[in-house]
């Protein structure tokens, strides 16, 4: 246990525990392993960023937590929220959690809104559904929330999604997600399709949620620098696995996994060095370490055996305490962890 912080307090502060979560999709060409053995904790009032390139399975992971995957998905593992495993709940029970306790911001706000329903009714919908409020009274609250996210004037709320810009639709979606003050908000690529200024705006709004609404945020993005600027902790995903997790500042400043390092190297300010090779197929992932075909420090061992998540050797103990404390048996699960033979 760490000095100064009692275990009970930690117990309270953890609100979501994902353990050994795997998702696969059977297809005619074989099984697509979209996520494999994902484990992480989400703490109260923190922003955890999940970073990875397109197709690494991060959106699938987000949908899997709320059980929003299509029916053919095969999911195993556990997602413990409060004292209940979300994966074991009935559809009816989880639908009560969706939107009220855990809400989600989709990556394509313009398409995620129903084109035939006025904006105010869509924002107010969670109120009608979860609280059984009338349309009229819920509209008033919807308006209040929408105004706090800058949606006001010009009868915007009486408009239809196609009449609004992408940024406005995004704000409407964020308003919808916070309207019932959920404990967790999962934001799936909230900046996708927005131009730079709007993306920044959206990020500012999302990070304000933490303070204003007291919710934790699981931010899914491919933008490493954005993630490091906003989030408290960061997990890097590659080919369906988390390869590195730790405090954002540490991961960003001093990435340990070769993939994290390569991702950082891709940033314009670091010389825009592309990662050699292409992302592997999720149907037949490479044997051993999944990154080995593209890794510059590959050894014979990397080819043969898959590395496990392990506490990073080089991470200093003092830094490990920071934001994330450890709860019980496995000290390793809270600090900096890397999935690499060399670290």
């Amino acid at each position: 246990m760490y000095p100064g912080i009692s275990p009970e307090k930690h117990q309270q502060r953890r609100i979501l525990k994902v353990e050994g979560l795997s998702v696969s999709f059977p297809t005619t060409l074989g099984s697509v392993m979209a996520a494999q053995d994902i484990s992480f904790d989400l703490w109260e009032k923190e922003i955890l960023a999940l970073v990875g390139e397109t197709g690494c399975g991060k959106s699938v992971l987000a949908s899997a937590i709320l059980r929003l995957l299509p029916g053919n998905a095969v999911v195993s593992g556990s997602v413990v929220f409060g004292d209940r495993d979300l994966l074991c709940l009935s559809e009816k029970d989880i639908s009560r959690i969706r939107g009220s306790q855990i809400s989600m911001v989709f990556q394509n706000p313009t398409l995620a809104h129903n084109p035939l329903i006025r904006m105010e009714d869509q924002i107010a919908e969670p109120l009608c559904v979860h609280r059984g409020r009338s349309k009229k009274s819920s509209r008033k609250l919807a308006e209040k929330v929408a105004i706090s996210f800058g949606l006001e004037g010009g009868g915007i709320l009486k408009m239809y999604p196609f009449e609004l810009s992408g940024g406005m639709n995004q704000r409407a979606m964020i308003s919808t997600s916070v309207i019932l003050s959920p404990r967790i908000i999962i934001a799936d690529e909230p900046t996708k399709g927005l131009d730079d200024a709007l993306a920044r705006q959206a990020i500012r709004e999302l990070s304000s949620i933490k303070e204003q609404w007291g919710a934790s945020l699981l931010l899914i993005t491919h933008d490493l620098s954005m993630a490091s600027a906003v989030s408290d902790r960061m997990a890097v995903m590659y080919c369906g696995q988390i390869v590195e997790i730790g405090l954002s500042s540490e991961v960003f400043e001093n990435p340990l996994h070769p993939y994290s390092r390569a991702l950082k190297g891709c940033l314009p300010e670091n010389g825009y060095n592309p990662i050699p090779g292409s992302s592997p197929s999720l149907i037949q992932p490479p044997s051993g370490c999944r990154y080995h075909p593209r890794c510059s420090q590959m050894t014979a061992l990397c080819k043969e055996a898959p590395p496990m998540m392990a506490v990073a050797k080089s991470s200093s103990n003092s830094k490990k305490i920071g934001m994330s404390g450890c709860s019980d048996d496995r000290h390793e699960s809270c600090g900096r962890q890397v999935r690499c033979w060399r670290c």
């Binding site: 297809t27 060409l29 697509v32 197709g55 394509n108 398409l111 084109p115 992302s279 197929s281």
Partner: peptide
């Protein structure tokens, strides 16, 4: 346009994407 993106999304694309 909605449909167009859906078609793309609906295709199982095992390769590089």
């Amino acid at each position: 346009g909605q449909q167009a993106t859906k078609r793309e999304a609906g295709t199982v694309n095992p390769g590089t994407g």
